[in-house]
Computed example of a mutant assay.
Amino acid sequence: MDYRKATKEDYPLILKIWEQSVIATHPFLSIKDREAIKLEIPNYFPHLAIQIWFVNHAVVGFSALQEDYLEMLFLDGHSIGKGYGKQILNQLIKDFSIKKVDVNEQNHNAKKFYLKNGFIQVGRDAVDSEGRAYPILHLKLA
């Protein structure tokens, strides 16, 4: 597993991966909300440290960080369920000292993934950062 720092030229690829992943893993998200979030996300990119992840030179996903906080970890739709998420998370903890992440409460697979990989729940918000009815769980590395 390799990674490199993303550039502005990677933003369309990152957004494509995000959308494929969300369609595959966020069935609770309405199409209207998914499209609204898709428009919002690129505004955050310049403020985040984004990594593009590769296996044998093929892109499998991306991560986005802010200090010790994992803002985003999304895998290409074809890469989900192959163990890449765990490899990426372990590398992020090792190389970037990631300690915190938020997940949608309705995203049961993501919650299970982070809890299985050493995170514990430390808080909950009833809505997301834009006030939408998608509760957010705050997790930290135990």
Results as ranks from 00 to 15, higher is better:
residue 1 M to R: 02
residue 1 M to V: 10
residue 1 M to C: 07
residue 4 R to W: 01
residue 4 R to Q: 02
residue 6 A to D: 15
residue 7 T to D: 09
residue 9 E to V: 02
residue 9 E to G: 08
residue 10 D to W: 03
residue 10 D to E: 04
residue 11 Y to K: 04
residue 12 P to I: 12
residue 15 L to W: 02
residue 18 W to Q: 03
residue 19 E to S: 13
residue 19 E to D: 13
residue 20 Q to F: 01
residue 20 Q to L: 05
residue 22 V to M: 00
residue 23 I to V: 14
residue 23 I to G: 00
residue 24 A to M: 13
residue 24 A to P: 10
residue 27 P to V: 11
residue 30 S to L: 12
residue 30 S to C: 09
residue 36 A to Q: 15
residue 37 I to Y: 13
residue 37 I to C: 08
residue 38 K to P: 04
residue 38 K to F: 13
residue 38 K to Y: 12
residue 40 E to S: 12
residue 40 E to D: 15
residue 40 E to H: 11
residue 40 E to M: 07
residue 43 N to I: 07
residue 43 N to F: 11
residue 44 Y to T: 11
residue 44 Y to R: 13
residue 46 P to D: 15
residue 47 H to Y: 15
residue 48 L to N: 05
residue 48 L to I: 02
residue 49 A to L: 15
residue 49 A to V: 03
residue 50 I to N: 05
residue 52 I to P: 06
residue 52 I to S: 05
residue 54 F to D: 03
residue 56 N to M: 07
residue 57 H to A: 13
residue 58 A to T: 15
residue 62 F to T: 06
residue 63 S to I: 09
residue 63 S to K: 04
residue 65 L to T: 09
residue 66 Q to G: 01
residue 67 E to I: 06
residue 67 E to C: 01
residue 67 E to G: 00
residue 70 L to H: 09
residue 72 M to I: 01
residue 74 F to N: 03
residue 75 L to P: 05
residue 77 G to M: 02
residue 77 G to D: 06
residue 78 H to F: 13
residue 78 H to N: 13
residue 82 K to A: 06
residue 85 G to C: 08
residue 85 G to V: 03
residue 88 I to R: 08
residue 88 I to N: 06
residue 91 Q to A: 14
residue 92 L to S: 09
residue 93 I to Y: 01
residue 93 I to M: 06
residue 94 K to W: 02
residue 96 F to W: 11
residue 96 F to H: 07
residue 99 K to Q: 13
residue 99 K to T: 12
residue 103 V to T: 14
residue 103 V to G: 01
residue 103 V to L: 05
residue 104 N to R: 07
residue 107 N to Y: 06
residue 108 H to R: 14
residue 110 A to G: 08
residue 112 K to Q: 12
residue 120 I to V: 05
residue 121 Q to K: 14
residue 121 Q to V: 12
residue 121 Q to E: 04
residue 123 G to K: 10
residue 127 V to E: 12
residue 128 D to H: 01
residue 128 D to M: 10
residue 130 E to S: 15
residue 131 G to L: 10
residue 132 R to N: 13
residue 133 A to L: 08
residue 133 A to R: 07
residue 134 Y to Q: 01
residue 134 Y to I: 14
residue 135 P to A: 02
residue 135 P to F: 01
residue 137 L to I: 14
residue 137 L to F: 11
residue 140 K to A: 01
residue 141 L to T: 00
